[in-house]
Amino acid sequence: MPVVSTRSAVCVLGRFPALAGADLDVAAGEIVLLSGPNGAGKTTLLRLIAGLLPLRSGSATVLGVDLRRDRRSHRRHLALVGHDTGCYDDLTVRENVRFGLRSAGADVRQADAAIERLGLAAQSGITHRRLSAGQRRRLALAVAFARAPRLLLLDEPHAGLDADGRALLDELLAAASSEGRTVILASHELERARALAHREVVVDAGLLHGGVLETIDGDVVAQGTKVEAAVS
């Protein structure tokens, strides 16, 4: 059973069809790279999977939940790092991570370890307002990783990170994958992301190429295997 499975998913932003029929399968433990030009629908696809956007037509099942019926109950098991940090300007790094954990019903004692892991220990008491762009990105990742989600959705996570940060992120994603967590990331850092990902899916004008998994004897391809994208 794939962690994410969408068929002909159409998603409309206002009056604009941002996704015009997306077919995507992602297996547990996979790292899938979404590539494609600006405005292709990568962010919309990630937000759809997170349950933030309604489906107009088609189907989507994420972590066993049919999003046509329920866009909420799978959210506690996933984390989305988007363009915004989702944090509060006047809370410190530590308070933001703790509130993220608290509101998701997770143990707030995980906060310090996650902050440490993302290299923000020295900034722990500094408010979000005073962080640099790269530090904010690290904070958003700390909030996401602290919850140890089964599914990580990352929208251009490399943007703003320094060399150390990028290496750290790759390390974290590889570790998450080996623990059986699933990662879907949209990125323009193609070289770096391709080295990391098991599979690349090209998003183009609201459609996906190579989104559907090849099945071997009815089973989804085992995690960790590099799969040649099927381009039809």
Binding site: L52, R76, L80, D84, G86, Y88, D89, G100, S103, G105
Partner: peptide
């Protein structure tokens, strides 16, 4: 205003609260 500044509203929705 506090909730809409850095996409905190989406974060709140995603937390499942």
């Amino acid at each position: 205003a506090v909730e809409s500044e850095h996409g905190a509203r989406d974060a709140l929705r995603l937390s499942g609260i």
